[in-house]
Every structure is written in structure tokens, then in C-alpha cells.
Design a protein around this nucleic acid. Structure first.
Lengths: 246, 246
DNA sequence: AATCTCTGTGGCAATTTCGCGGTAAGTTTC
DNA sequence: GAAACTTACCGCGAAATTGCCACAGAGATT
């Protein structure tokens, strides 16, 4: 995980820097985000309203847009809808806490992810990295299987690497995300201890994997003592068995 | 464990050698792998791209395929997906370090295992041995009967080594799985004590086999005291007789 | 510098698997 | 019938595997 983390960051830092447009009317927040993303090796441009954003978009190329929903004048939501039809850029939406309507509307408008204010800067960076990684082969459209794996009241959105409780995201660490990603790639299949350890960069001899499994169980299982979804196959490894119906 | 291991090795050394197709555009690596596997008693054929691999596959029979994901032209991933639909061969994928996406995609495409470059030749041999052991009953081509053996309300899915009660899997230990696998390979046939003991890595003199048979009976027989399916052939060994109809 | 989060490690308990000894029960042979 | 085999199967303990807590160290953030 250490390796993977470093890898991701270096990948972003290397090559030509990704260009991100931050649209928010709050100067403080916008500058904070800009500086933080700048430190992480991104190239950042700010816009303080929808009109300004359109101007910037017309003038230069971006790899991703971060939009705040609450803005005077044209709201972030409207901007998002408009952009969806014309451009094909990943969009990350910032919503206020306790406004689930915004989130749902945002998802309907086609945003790639959303973040609830207040959020931690690191969280923002992680989401951006995920979106950029996932958005690369964005050319081909959908028509593939349902990307949602359900576990009782929770669900995991592979493709965005998000664990959702209803429509609120649950915090996942990088190691946990890695595990859910492989398990999600082959639902129901038993993955060997070796493969899993390799994935999180741990020694197969140690107890690192056990610990991660337990920590993951505490997040997705109703009763972690009797796992229903992330089950252990004795002597073989572990398997992720989502709810049958989906 | 060690019994199983010894078993595997002897199986590979003896019998007719397994045929492996190695698909990699890197001549050095391909030849290295070929030579190493050759030393271990495998029969190896190389292909330097996807097209070449298809030609080889059309011309002769293989037991396993090793593919590199990174290849000019048709990628290993595409080749894998295509093969999954037409052939039913175990596939081991070689991925570059720090490309978890490749591994995920590989698992989605249905590869049996993957290995991250750079790897140690020993690792490769171990994984190949594991896959071949696990995938044995799958190698033969189609037109075989239903892979399900029925015992009353239970059934055993050879090919996946799963004992099913309706559609819920019944837990099997490794020794029990080994036994069901051999019995399932030759339904109705009487297997000698020696052969069975060899399979589970036990001394033919001890009582290990008896105990395993009993434990298995408790799982598949309606009345373990009067075995109907896993019967003992006195002085000869044991035989598995599934329900006549299937 | 102080704090927080994430992670692996070491250790110990709990669980599971497995083989052996011993004994009962059944079968064949004489 | 009785001896000689062969199989059924209960407990027990050893070994392997997994569950999980407490702790320390590394990085990131403030």
C-alpha cells in the first residue's frame, strides 16, 4: 500500500501535470484547495462563478473539474448539466452537509463523484486520483454489468471505488480500497492469501492481511463476528459474496 | 499439505508432460521462461504476439497459457477475454509492477492467477503447478455429461470442487475435497486403499483413510451407518455411486 | 512540535483439520 | 465355530490456520 500510494502520487507528479478547474465562490476555500492540489503536483486554475468557469473552459484544456453546488447566480448543478452535454470531462461536486437532494441530483446530472463539506484535503486528493485513474478509458460507454455490489444496507461502487451507505460515502483506507477492488473484480471467487498479500504489499507470512480483513469486516459486515459477505475459505483464502440479487 | 505437494510434483514428473503456451513479446524473457519450465519437465511452446498465439492454439493442444499483458498490437488482456469465450484453458497472466488496474481487469476477464514482474522463476513454477492441480478436471474439452453428481438432496460440482445443498455450498476440508475429486473422476469405480491414501498424503498402514471416509459419509450420506453412495468394497477399497439418474 | 490516521507486528486465544491409538463390529477363510 | 483380516468410529492431542488486541512507527496535517 505504501508502494501503491507512492506510485500513484509519483504517477501524477510525473508526466505532464493534470490540469484541474476549481469552481467555488468562496475565495478562502478555493485558494485552500488550489494550494493543496498544487502541492500535490496538480496544475490548478480557479473560477469564482459559473460564467467565469465557462470562460476558462473555452480558453484552455482541463482534465477534471471541481464544482461547488452552492453558488450565487447559476448553480453548480446547472453548470454541471450544461457541461455534461458539451464536454466529456470528469466532474467532482462539492455539496453542503445535510443536503442529500443535491447529491442525488448531482448523480443524476452525471457527476463522477461528490464530496460533502467539510472534508479533509487528503480525501479530496484521493477522490481526484481515483477519478482520473478511472476516467482514462472513458471513451467507451456503458452497457456493462451493474457496478454496484450490495452488502445489506451498504453497497460498493466499483468503478469509483466508493463504499456507500445509502448515498453517503463511507471512509475507506487505501488498503481497504485495494482489497475491495480485487474482490469486486471477481465476486464470489476465492482469492488466495498470496494474491491478496501481494495486492496490499504485505508479507504472506505476517498477519497484515488478517488485520486488514478484520478492519474491512467491521465496515461492511452487520455482525463482524459472523461474516456473511467477506467470508473466509479455510486453508484457501477469502471470498467476497455480495447479496444474491444485487 | 506436504503430501499434496509431493503428489503434485510426482504427477508432473511422471505421466505425459503438460504442454504450456508462453505468450510474450520479449524474446529474452520468453526464452528464459521456456528453458526454466522445460527443466521442470513441462513441454513449452512460445508465441511472440497474440496472432501467433492464436495460430499455435489452433494447431495443437495445451494445458495452460502464460500471457504477458503488455504486448504490442493486441494486448494480453484482449487475448485473454477472447480465449475465455472459446477455449476453457487455465490462464496465468504476467503484469507489470504497480499496475493494479491490469490485475483487476485480468481477474474480471477470468484469469486463474497472475504474477507481477519481475518475478522469480520458482514462483512461476509453483503457481503453474497449483493451477494445473486445481484445474485438472477442466482440461478435457466439451461434450461431457453434466458435471453434477447427485447424492439425494446434495450434489457435487466437479470442476469447481463444491458440495452443494440446493445452491448453498457445504463446507469441505481439503482432504474431503481431494477424495471427492478422485471419486468424482471415476464414478462407480472402486478405488484401492493405496491410491486413496496417496491422494490425501497419508500412510496406507494407518487409519487416516478410514476416518476421512467416515467424515465424508457424515456429510453426503443420509444415513452414514448404511452408506448408499460412498460404499465400501470389502478387501478392495471404496467406491462412489451417485444416484443412477444423475 | 503536537496530533491523527493508517499500517504492520508480535503475541495469544479460538477454531479447524487431521492422524493415531484403541476398541467394537463385520467378513472371509479354514 | 474360531482365527485372521478388514473396516467402523470414538476420543484425544498435535499441527495448521485464522481472529483479534495492543502497541509502535511512519506520514500527513494542523
Amino acid at each position: 500500500m505504501r508502494g501503491e500510494n507512492a506510485n500513484t502520487q509519483s504517477a501524477e507528479a510525473a508526466a505532464e501535470a493534470r490540469h484541474i478547474l476549481v469552481v467555488d465562490d468562496d475565495d478562502r476555500l478555493r485558494n485552500l484547495i488550489a494550494r493543496y492540489l498544487g502541492d500535490k503536483g496538480y496544475r490548478v486554475t480557479g473560477a469564482k462563478d459559473a460564467a467565469n468557469a465557462r470562460a476558462k473552459l473555452a480558453g484552455m484544456a482541463f482534465d477534471l473539474i471541481v464544482v461547488d453546488v452552492m453558488m450565487p447566480g447559476e448553480s453548480g448543478l446547472e453548470l454541471t448539466r450544461a457541461l455534461r452535454d458539451t464536454l466529456d470531462l470528469p466532474i467532482l461536486m462539492l455539496t453542503a452537509m445535510g443536503e442529500p437532494d443535491d447529491r442525488i441530483a448531482g448523480l443524476e446530472a452525471g457527476v463522477d463523484d461528490y464530496l460533502t463539506k467539510p472534508f479533509e484535503p487528503r480525501e479530496l486528493v484521493l477522490r481526484i486520483a481515483t477519478i482520473l485513474r478511472r476516467a482514462q478509458p472513458r471513451a467507451q460507454d456503458g452497457s456493462q454489468a451493474a457496478p454496484l455490489l450490495r452488502f445489506g444496507s451498504l453497497s460498493f461502487d466499483r468503478g469509483r471505488d466508493l463504499l456507500l451507505n445509502g448515498d453517503a460515502p463511507v471512509r475507506l483506507t487505501t488498503a481497504e480500497t485495494s482489497l475491495l477492488r480485487i474482490f469486486g473484480a471477481a465476486p464470489g471467487r476465492t482469492l488466495g492469501r498470496d494474491a491478496l498479500c501481494r495486492e496490499i504489499g504485505a508479507e504472506p507470512t505476517g498477519r497484515a492481511l488478517d488485520v486488514q480483513i478484520i478492519r474491512l469486516r467491521r465496515k461492511i459486515e452487520t455482525n463482524p463476528k459472523e461474516p456473511r459477505y467477506l467470508v473466509t475459505v479455510w486453508g484457501e483464502g477469502y471470498a467476497l459474496r455480495p447479496d444474491p440479487d444485487g
